[in-house]
């Protein structure tokens, strides 16, 4: 028995080694499946919960153009959640279980969405920085070893560049505006910069799950590598529109050809993940109440379908 398990694991790891994708019906170690369900569901929940801070500004968007863009962006995020849920479901977990895990707190979502969107400039900062950070991560995940996850990432990446550009456009417009508008944009930058860096997770030296994830090619780049990539491409974009990165230690390192950055406040990170962020309670309560209030719609749809079946049979 144990020997059969060993052979199975060796075959699986050889396949991964050769760069083959793993598909739903392939045999895979329980740990691989478990890691994927956790990561993909967390990713799906993040897309869905991420609609809340932006949804907060739909009715107050400053123009019809801005409102249409924001609505389309939020709809995409809902779609991303659905791609990822459906990819996670190929591993044998049901949508119902996934949602229950979110509601009971067993499954997490990205910490960034526990921060509030206080002004219109926050919508710019979210699109530019939060989606920008997400893109760096998602581009890397396009080459993840699990086929359905990788395909969902390819689809998502195609849609993300509009998200980041619309956010950057908002920031650029505000930075070309009045002194108040500029101050608003800088304030949003100051509040979103550090949480965006935290999106990549703990430093490689203190991140507990990475061993297997790398060996099984679920993860292709480390947290610190991805964070560095994000910083290096974002600094120039900030400079072009006159925004200051709120990090006095940020400095170009000529030797390493990348930016050095200041200390990330990991204490804040674990506090917010632990439930004590500005919006944790609000985000979850909203999701649960919408889910419960929508139950009758699912019931009605089922009843209608049953009735159609019935009238076809008589």
């Amino acid at each position: 028995m144990e020997q059969a398990q060993d052979t199975l694991l060796r075959e699986f790891e050889e396949k991964i080694e050769c760069g083959f994708a793993i598909e739903p019906k392939d045999r895979m170690p329980a740990g691989y499946r478990k890691h994927l369900v956790r990561q993909m569901s967390q990713h799906a929940h993040s897309e869905v919960i991420g609609m809340q801070p932006e949804g907060n500004w739909v009715t107050r968007a400053p123009s019809l153009r801005a409102k249409q863009i924001l609505l389309a962006k939020i709809q995409d995020e809902g779609g991303h959640g659905l791609y990822l849920y459906s990819a996670a479901e190929t591993l044998g977990v049901s949508r119902d279980e996934l949602i229950e895990q979110l509601h009971t707190g067993k499954a997490k979502y990205s910490n960034i969405f526990n921060y509030p969107a206080l002004s219109w400039a926050d919508i710019g900062a979210i699109g530019w920085l939060v989606d920008g950070a997400a893109i760096v991560n998602q581009v890397s995940l396009q080459r993840t070893s699990y086929g359905p996850y990788s395909r969902a990432m390819v689809r998502i990446c195609k849609e993300e560049s509009f998200h980041q550009r619309q956010g950057y456009e908002i920031m650029a417009k505000m930075m070309a505006g009045t002194a108040d508008q500029k101050a608003m944009a800088q304030d949003a930058m100051n509040r979103w910069w550090w949480p965006s860096l935290m999106m990549f997770g703990p430093h490689d030296s203190d991140s507990p799950h990475t061993g297997d994830a790398f060996k099984w090619k679920i993860k292709r780049h480390s947290n610190d590598e991805l964070r560095q990539k994000f910083i290096d491409k974002t600094v120039q974009q900030a400079e072009v529109i006159g925004l200051t990165i709120p990090d006095k230690d940020l400095k170009w390192n000529e030797e390493k050809k990348c930016y050095d950055h200041g200390e990330i406040n990991w204490e804040e990170f674990s506090r917010v993940i632990g439930g004590d962020g500005p919006c944790n309670k609000q985000r979850m309560e909203h999701h649960i109440s919408v889910h419960n209030e929508g139950a009758w719609v699912r019931e009605a749809a089922e009843a209608y379908s049953a009735k159609q079946q019935y009238s076809k049979n008589v």
């Binding site: 389309a72 709809q75 995409d76 779609g79 659905l82 791609y83 459906s86 990819a87 479901e89 949508r95 359905p148 395909r151 969902a152 689809r155 849609e159 699912r298 749809a301 089922e302 209608y304 379908s305 159609q308």
Partner: peptide
């Protein structure tokens, strides 16, 4: 990919909204 729906028509509409924007 896949979607959830209670009948054929909803399945088509959800498929369009999810995979064809």
């Amino acid at each position: 990919g896949s979607i959830h729906a209670s009948d054929k028509q909803m399945a088509l509409q959800n498929a369009r909204d999810t995979y064809c924007r």
